[in-house]
Design a protein around this nucleic acid. Structure first.
Length: 271
DNA sequence: ACTATCCCCTGACGGC
DNA sequence: TGCCGTCAGGGGATAG
Protein backbone atom coordinates (compact mmCIF):
# COMPACT_ATOMS: atom_id res chain seq x y z
CA UNK A 1 0.00 0.00 0.00
CA UNK A 2 1.68 3.22 -1.16
CA UNK A 3 2.00 5.78 1.63
CA UNK A 4 4.28 8.81 1.84
CA UNK A 5 7.65 6.96 1.67
CA UNK A 6 6.54 4.83 -1.29
CA UNK A 7 5.18 7.83 -3.18
CA UNK A 8 8.37 9.79 -2.41
CA UNK A 9 10.45 6.88 -3.75
CA UNK A 10 8.37 6.87 -6.94
CA UNK A 11 8.67 10.65 -7.28
CA UNK A 12 12.47 10.64 -6.90
CA UNK A 13 12.80 7.90 -9.48
CA UNK A 14 10.44 9.56 -11.95
CA UNK A 15 12.36 12.83 -11.74
CA UNK A 16 15.29 11.09 -13.35
CA UNK A 17 13.18 9.42 -16.02
CA UNK A 18 10.69 12.14 -16.92
CA UNK A 19 12.25 15.58 -16.57
CA UNK A 20 13.07 16.89 -20.02
CA UNK A 21 10.99 14.25 -21.78
CA UNK A 22 8.02 15.09 -23.95
CA UNK A 23 4.76 13.13 -24.23
CA UNK A 24 4.22 11.59 -27.64
CA UNK A 25 0.86 10.01 -26.87
CA UNK A 26 -1.29 8.71 -24.01
CA UNK A 27 -3.48 5.61 -24.00
CA UNK A 28 -6.08 4.75 -21.38
CA UNK A 29 -8.97 2.29 -21.27
CA UNK A 30 -10.55 2.92 -17.85
CA UNK A 31 -12.78 6.03 -17.49
CA UNK A 32 -12.94 5.83 -13.68
CA UNK A 33 -9.17 6.13 -13.53
CA UNK A 34 -9.08 9.51 -15.26
CA UNK A 35 -12.43 10.87 -14.06
CA UNK A 36 -14.25 10.86 -17.38
CA UNK A 37 -13.67 10.29 -21.06
CA UNK A 38 -10.23 8.72 -21.54
CA UNK A 39 -10.00 10.28 -25.02
CA UNK A 40 -10.24 13.79 -23.62
CA UNK A 41 -7.75 13.10 -20.84
CA UNK A 42 -5.24 11.60 -23.25
CA UNK A 43 -5.60 14.34 -25.83
CA UNK A 44 -5.01 17.03 -23.20
CA UNK A 45 -1.61 15.56 -22.34
CA UNK A 46 -0.25 14.98 -25.82
CA UNK A 47 2.84 17.04 -26.59
CA UNK A 48 3.49 18.21 -23.01
CA UNK A 49 7.02 18.58 -21.65
CA UNK A 50 7.82 17.21 -18.18
CA UNK A 51 9.49 19.85 -16.04
CA UNK A 52 9.38 18.41 -12.51
CA UNK A 53 7.81 15.76 -10.28
CA UNK A 54 6.48 16.76 -6.87
CA UNK A 55 4.54 15.28 -3.97
CA UNK A 56 2.09 16.25 -1.25
CA UNK A 57 1.02 13.49 1.10
CA UNK A 58 0.23 10.45 -1.01
CA UNK A 59 -0.27 12.47 -4.21
CA UNK A 60 2.42 12.68 -6.87
CA UNK A 61 2.35 15.59 -9.32
CA UNK A 62 3.83 15.30 -12.79
CA UNK A 63 4.46 18.97 -13.55
CA UNK A 64 4.62 20.25 -17.14
CA UNK A 65 6.40 23.32 -18.41
CA UNK A 66 3.89 26.13 -18.10
CA UNK A 67 2.67 24.97 -14.67
CA UNK A 68 -0.11 22.51 -15.46
CA UNK A 69 0.28 19.08 -13.90
CA UNK A 70 -1.17 15.61 -13.58
CA UNK A 71 -2.03 14.57 -10.03
CA UNK A 72 -1.63 10.85 -9.42
CA UNK A 73 -2.96 8.87 -6.47
CA UNK A 74 -1.85 5.23 -6.46
CA UNK A 75 -4.79 4.01 -4.40
CA UNK A 76 -3.92 0.62 -2.95
CA UNK A 77 -2.23 -1.28 -5.73
CA UNK A 78 -1.17 1.38 -8.25
CA UNK A 79 2.27 1.07 -9.85
CA UNK A 80 4.13 3.62 -11.98
CA UNK A 81 6.63 1.82 -14.17
CA UNK A 82 9.21 2.97 -16.68
CA UNK A 83 9.30 0.46 -19.50
CA UNK A 84 10.49 -0.09 -23.03
CA UNK A 85 7.78 0.24 -25.71
CA UNK A 86 8.16 -3.38 -26.75
CA UNK A 87 7.24 -4.65 -23.31
CA UNK A 88 3.86 -6.43 -23.54
CA UNK A 89 1.09 -4.95 -21.39
CA UNK A 90 -0.69 -7.30 -19.00
CA UNK A 91 -4.37 -7.15 -18.09
CA UNK A 92 -3.78 -4.82 -15.14
CA UNK A 93 -2.11 -2.08 -17.17
CA UNK A 94 -4.68 0.67 -17.62
CA UNK A 95 -2.72 3.68 -18.82
CA UNK A 96 0.40 4.30 -20.88
CA UNK A 97 2.28 7.50 -21.54
CA UNK A 98 4.56 7.15 -24.55
CA UNK A 99 7.61 9.36 -24.21
CA UNK A 100 9.53 11.07 -26.98
CA UNK A 101 12.82 9.87 -25.53
CA UNK A 102 15.01 6.84 -26.13
CA UNK A 103 11.92 4.76 -26.81
CA UNK A 104 10.58 4.79 -23.28
CA UNK A 105 7.09 4.81 -21.83
CA UNK A 106 5.52 5.42 -18.42
CA UNK A 107 3.11 2.61 -17.57
CA UNK A 108 0.38 2.60 -14.93
CA UNK A 109 -0.62 -0.80 -13.48
CA UNK A 110 -3.32 -1.16 -10.85
CA UNK A 111 -4.93 -4.48 -9.88
CA UNK A 112 -7.71 -2.98 -7.74
CA UNK A 113 -8.21 0.13 -9.89
CA UNK A 114 -8.52 2.42 -6.84
CA UNK A 115 -5.91 4.83 -8.24
CA UNK A 116 -6.81 8.20 -9.79
CA UNK A 117 -5.35 10.62 -12.34
CA UNK A 118 -6.47 14.25 -12.61
CA UNK A 119 -5.30 17.20 -14.68
CA UNK A 120 -4.39 20.18 -12.50
CA UNK A 121 -4.60 23.58 -14.18
CA UNK A 122 -4.87 26.03 -11.31
CA UNK A 123 -1.62 25.28 -9.51
CA UNK A 124 -0.75 22.59 -6.99
CA UNK A 125 -1.81 24.70 -4.01
CA UNK A 126 -5.34 24.98 -5.33
CA UNK A 127 -5.46 21.20 -5.82
CA UNK A 128 -4.32 20.66 -2.22
CA UNK A 129 -7.05 23.03 -1.00
CA UNK A 130 -9.69 21.45 -3.22
CA UNK A 131 -8.87 17.98 -1.89
CA UNK A 132 -8.81 19.38 1.66
CA UNK A 133 -5.36 17.92 2.29
CA UNK A 134 -3.69 18.78 5.57
CA UNK A 135 0.01 19.65 5.92
CA UNK A 136 2.47 17.12 4.51
CA UNK A 137 3.74 14.71 7.16
CA UNK A 138 7.38 15.59 6.37
CA UNK A 139 6.98 19.32 6.83
CA UNK A 140 4.28 19.67 9.48
CA UNK A 141 5.27 21.53 12.66
CA UNK A 142 4.38 20.35 16.18
CA UNK A 143 2.27 23.50 16.57
CA UNK A 144 0.22 22.77 13.44
CA UNK A 145 -0.27 19.15 14.43
CA UNK A 146 -1.27 19.83 18.02
CA UNK A 147 -3.75 22.42 16.78
CA UNK A 148 -5.37 19.87 14.50
CA UNK A 149 -5.37 17.06 17.08
CA UNK A 150 -6.98 19.22 19.77
CA UNK A 151 -9.85 19.93 17.42
CA UNK A 152 -11.15 16.35 17.32
CA UNK A 153 -12.51 13.80 19.74
CA UNK A 154 -11.60 10.83 17.55
CA UNK A 155 -8.91 8.27 18.32
CA UNK A 156 -5.34 9.29 17.50
CA UNK A 157 -5.27 6.50 14.92
CA UNK A 158 -8.35 7.82 13.11
CA UNK A 159 -6.98 11.37 13.24
CA UNK A 160 -3.58 10.46 11.80
CA UNK A 161 -5.21 8.45 9.00
CA UNK A 162 -7.41 11.43 8.07
CA UNK A 163 -5.65 13.13 5.15
CA UNK A 164 -7.29 16.47 6.00
CA UNK A 165 -5.54 16.41 9.38
CA UNK A 166 -2.17 15.23 8.10
CA UNK A 167 -1.27 14.18 4.55
CA UNK A 168 0.87 11.13 3.95
CA UNK A 169 0.36 8.52 6.67
CA UNK A 170 -1.54 5.30 5.96
CA UNK A 171 -2.21 2.25 8.05
CA UNK A 172 1.37 0.96 8.22
CA UNK A 173 3.21 4.11 9.27
CA UNK A 174 0.43 5.18 11.65
CA UNK A 175 0.79 1.96 13.65
CA UNK A 176 4.58 2.24 13.57
CA UNK A 177 4.76 5.85 14.78
CA UNK A 178 2.23 5.26 17.56
CA UNK A 179 4.35 2.35 18.75
CA UNK A 180 7.45 4.52 18.67
CA UNK A 181 5.93 7.19 20.93
CA UNK A 182 4.17 4.70 23.21
CA UNK A 183 0.68 6.00 22.49
CA UNK A 184 -2.22 3.54 22.26
CA UNK A 185 -4.07 3.81 18.92
CA UNK A 186 -7.44 4.14 20.67
CA UNK A 187 -6.27 7.13 22.76
CA UNK A 188 -8.36 10.21 22.04
CA UNK A 189 -6.31 12.55 19.85
CA UNK A 190 -7.07 15.56 22.04
CA UNK A 191 -5.60 13.90 25.14
CA UNK A 192 -2.01 13.76 23.90
CA UNK A 193 0.25 16.08 25.91
CA UNK A 194 2.37 18.71 24.16
CA UNK A 195 5.53 16.69 24.66
CA UNK A 196 3.85 13.67 23.07
CA UNK A 197 2.80 15.63 20.00
CA UNK A 198 6.37 16.89 19.78
CA UNK A 199 7.65 13.32 20.03
CA UNK A 200 5.10 12.32 17.41
CA UNK A 201 6.48 14.88 14.94
CA UNK A 202 10.11 13.92 15.59
CA UNK A 203 9.53 10.18 15.44
CA UNK A 204 7.32 10.46 12.38
CA UNK A 205 10.03 12.37 10.52
CA UNK A 206 12.70 9.82 11.48
CA UNK A 207 10.40 6.91 10.60
CA UNK A 208 9.46 8.33 7.20
CA UNK A 209 13.05 9.23 6.28
CA UNK A 210 14.24 5.77 7.33
CA UNK A 211 11.54 4.20 5.16
CA UNK A 212 12.47 6.42 2.21
CA UNK A 213 16.12 5.43 2.65
CA UNK A 214 14.96 1.81 2.31
CA UNK A 215 12.89 2.65 -0.79
CA UNK A 216 9.62 2.12 1.05
CA UNK A 217 7.68 -0.89 2.31
CA UNK A 218 6.53 -3.76 0.10
CA UNK A 219 3.79 -5.86 1.74
CA UNK A 220 2.24 -7.12 -1.46
CA UNK A 221 2.11 -4.98 -4.59
CA UNK A 222 4.34 -1.96 -4.15
CA UNK A 223 7.31 -1.59 -6.48
CA UNK A 224 9.24 1.49 -7.63
CA UNK A 225 9.29 2.63 -11.29
CA UNK A 226 12.18 0.24 -11.98
CA UNK A 227 10.11 -2.66 -10.67
CA UNK A 228 12.12 -3.02 -7.44
CA UNK A 229 10.51 -3.86 -4.11
CA UNK A 230 11.10 -1.76 -1.01
CA UNK A 231 13.09 -2.95 2.00
CA UNK A 232 11.43 -1.33 4.99
CA UNK A 233 9.03 -4.24 5.63
CA UNK A 234 11.94 -5.89 7.47
CA UNK A 235 12.25 -2.88 9.80
CA UNK A 236 8.58 -2.72 10.83
CA UNK A 237 8.23 -3.16 14.58
CA UNK A 238 4.53 -3.92 15.07
CA UNK A 239 2.63 -3.76 11.77
CA UNK A 240 1.60 -7.26 10.72
CA UNK A 241 3.51 -8.86 13.64
CA UNK A 242 0.66 -10.26 15.74
CA UNK A 243 1.96 -12.73 18.32
CA UNK A 244 5.61 -11.74 17.92
CA UNK A 245 7.59 -10.31 20.83
CA UNK A 246 7.76 -6.54 21.26
CA UNK A 247 11.39 -5.52 20.68
CA UNK A 248 11.27 -3.22 23.68
CA UNK A 249 9.54 -5.23 26.42
CA UNK A 250 8.98 -8.71 25.04
CA UNK A 251 5.20 -8.63 25.35
CA UNK A 252 3.20 -10.22 22.56
CA UNK A 253 2.15 -7.80 19.80
CA UNK A 254 -1.62 -7.71 19.47
CA UNK A 255 -4.07 -6.95 16.68
CA UNK A 256 -7.39 -5.12 16.95
CA UNK A 257 -9.70 -3.22 14.61
CA UNK A 258 -9.53 0.51 15.35
CA UNK A 259 -10.95 3.24 13.14
CA UNK A 260 -12.10 0.43 10.87
CA UNK A 261 -8.53 -0.70 10.18
CA UNK A 262 -6.42 -3.64 11.22
CA UNK A 263 -4.23 -2.23 13.97
CA UNK A 264 -1.10 -3.73 15.57
CA UNK A 265 0.32 -2.53 18.90
CA UNK A 266 2.19 -3.53 22.04
CA UNK A 267 -0.28 -3.81 24.93
CA UNK A 268 2.48 -3.09 27.47
CA UNK A 269 4.39 -0.21 25.81
CA UNK A 270 1.45 1.77 24.44
CA UNK A 271 -1.15 3.54 26.57
C1' DA B 1 -19.29 20.38 11.75
C1' DC B 2 -18.20 15.73 12.99
C1' DT B 3 -18.23 10.97 12.77
C1' DA B 4 -19.34 6.35 11.24
C1' DT B 5 -20.64 3.32 7.50
C1' DC B 6 -20.97 1.73 2.87
C1' DC B 7 -18.91 1.06 -1.52
C1' DC B 8 -15.57 0.45 -5.21
C1' DC B 9 -12.37 -3.76 -7.04
C1' DT B 10 -9.82 -8.03 -7.26
C1' DG B 11 -6.80 -11.68 -5.40
C1' DA B 12 -5.95 -14.56 -1.48
C1' DC B 13 -7.66 -17.70 1.52
C1' DG B 14 -10.63 -20.90 4.06
C1' DG B 15 -14.55 -23.99 4.39
C1' DC B 16 -17.03 -27.51 2.19
C1' DT C 1 -9.28 -25.39 -13.99
C1' DG C 2 -13.81 -26.47 -7.79
C1' DC C 3 -17.14 -23.16 -5.96
C1' DC C 4 -18.42 -19.65 -3.04
C1' DG C 5 -18.20 -16.38 0.85
C1' DT C 6 -15.29 -13.26 3.30
C1' DC C 7 -11.70 -10.03 3.94
C1' DA C 8 -8.41 -6.19 2.99
C1' DG C 9 -8.02 -1.15 2.41
C1' DG C 10 -7.71 4.76 0.54
C1' DG C 11 -10.85 7.78 -0.03
C1' DG C 12 -15.26 9.60 -1.81
C1' DA C 13 -20.21 9.50 -1.05
C1' DT C 14 -23.80 9.07 2.03
C1' DA C 15 -26.27 8.87 6.34
C1' DG C 16 -27.02 10.05 10.90
Amino acid sequence: VPELPEVETVVRSLRGSLIGARIRSVHCTVPSLVGGEPERFCAALSGRLFEDVKRHGKYAFLVFSGGDAVAVHLGMTGQMLIAQPGRPTDKHTHLEIILDRSGQKLVYRDVRKFGRFAIVTGGLDSFVREKKLGPDALSVTPLELSGALRRTRRSIKAALLDQSVLAGLGNIYTDEVLYRIGAAPWRRADTLADHQVHALCENMRELLYAAIADSGTTISDYVDPEGRQGGFQFALQVYGRKGEACGRCGASVQRAVIAGRGTWYCPACQS
